[in-house]
Amino acid sequence: MTRNEPRTSTGGAVDATEVLLPGRVAPEGLVVRHRRLDPPGPGQVTLRMEATGVSFAEQQMRRGKYFDQPSFPFVPGYDLVGTVTEVGPGADPAMKGRRYAALTKVGAWASHVLLPAADLVPVPEGTDPGTAEALVVNGVTAYRMLHQLARVRSGDTVLVHGANGGVGSLLVQLARHAGATVIGTASARNAEAVRSLGATPLDYREPDLPGRVRALAPDGVKAVFDHVGGPGLVDSFGLLARGGTLVSYGTASTRDVVGNAMLPVLLLFARLLRWNTLPNGRGAHFFNLWNGHRRRADFRRRFARDLGTVLDLHAEGVLDPPVAARVPLSEVASAMTLAESGTVVGKVLLVPDQP
């Protein structure tokens, strides 16, 4: 059921709509509620959401499996794009009416969000907000993993698992732009979508998937980007050429495993650490968007720089993030179910309800 767009109240307060995650629930257990959002305080702005994403992080959060999620209940939402409607004391008044992107980790599944003005990154005029949203976390993640961790260059061959996904599809495009040859795994139904991005598709259910990769890259691959984890990570590491790099950035294989949320992550870290001690010239890393910054100001500066680069690449026609669906915020259960189905190409977005 759709609801009317919240109206601004007097004094800069807003009647907002948000999605509450009350505990470990099925998608139907997500609660759509309304509340009064206070005016922005010093250094803050009110951002009216135009698009926010349904990512693997929220899929884990609803199961209590995301390694540093807050205690229930809370409002999920890792990132968003929107327009500033109110500016608090000390924030630049010129921000009002302009479109920005923000990385939040939680809290973005709402019609309006209070955020520090310093956390916002400008979105170029004319950029579709949904397209920009699909580049915020996914684009920066793909860009950093490819260029700053794996350092992929022209002539390299790389393997991208989940090449039809939000991050995977951008990894393929960035690698091809860098001059690399890309092998991409996906389901058979998504093979043509992967091929259209410029990668050679392989069915991830292939009984001898490592053998198929070796047939395409007999000397091994320069990099493997693996969001699956689990036993298949051993195969990913074994496919590396000497001097190659494994970049692990998720544990999708353990999403539905009942038990301690930290255990799969700790086992993963232990495995990567051991591999880095082997005398074979190969490296193994876990990518976390939030690590490597001692100061908040450093994180903001680097994130704004990298997101700006990614948005520029989109403007130049290099990156075209696939959007699987745009679902009204009040229909969040359907959006979550679709995102978890494994049948989509690209990112599922939540957008404002129409009046």
Rank of each mutant, 00 (worst) to 15 (best):
V160G: 05
D219E: 15
V54C: 05
L209P: 00
P129Q: 06
G162K: 07
E316R: 06
M145D: 08
R274P: 03
R301A: 14
F225D: 02
G88M: 10
R144Y: 06
Y100H: 02
H314N: 09
A102G: 09
G88F: 13
A191F: 10
E133L: 03
T254Y: 12
N280P: 11
A191W: 10
V194I: 12
L289G: 00
L21H: 04
F74C: 06
G283P: 03
P116T: 11
V45F: 07
A57V: 13
G126L: 07
Y66M: 11
S187W: 04
T131R: 04
N138R: 05
L307H: 02
V332P: 01
G244T: 13
D306I: 01
L268H: 07
P218W: 06
V45A: 05
T245E: 06
F287P: 10
T277F: 02
L307W: 03
R296Y: 12
A26C: 08
P218Q: 13
A91S: 14
D312A: 14
V19E: 11
G346Y: 00
V137W: 07
A91H: 06
G259R: 08
V32Y: 04
S111I: 15
A178H: 00
A51N: 12
S169A: 13
N260W: 05
V81F: 01
S187K: 12
T343Y: 02
M95I: 12
G179D: 04
D156N: 00
E125V: 10
G107Q: 11
P201S: 08
V137G: 03
H177Y: 00
D226L: 14
P27W: 15
R296G: 06
A241S: 04
A304T: 14
Q44K: 05
I183F: 01
N4R: 15
A284L: 07
H177C: 08
G82C: 11
V234T: 13
R294C: 05
G155Q: 00
G107W: 13
Q44L: 10
L263H: 13
S330C: 14
G139K: 00
L246T: 10
D298C: 01
T309D: 07
R255V: 05
G41F: 06
A188D: 09
P122E: 12
D353M: 08
P322H: 11
R7P: 07
V160N: 00
L114P: 01
G107A: 02
A57N: 06
L266D: 03
N190G: 07
N260D: 15
V152T: 04
W109R: 10
M61V: 15
M336Q: 04
P322T: 14
V172M: 02
F269M: 02
F56Y: 12
V167M: 04
M1D: 13
A94H: 15
D256L: 09
P42W: 13
T104A: 03
N260E: 15
G308I: 01
T127D: 08
T52I: 12
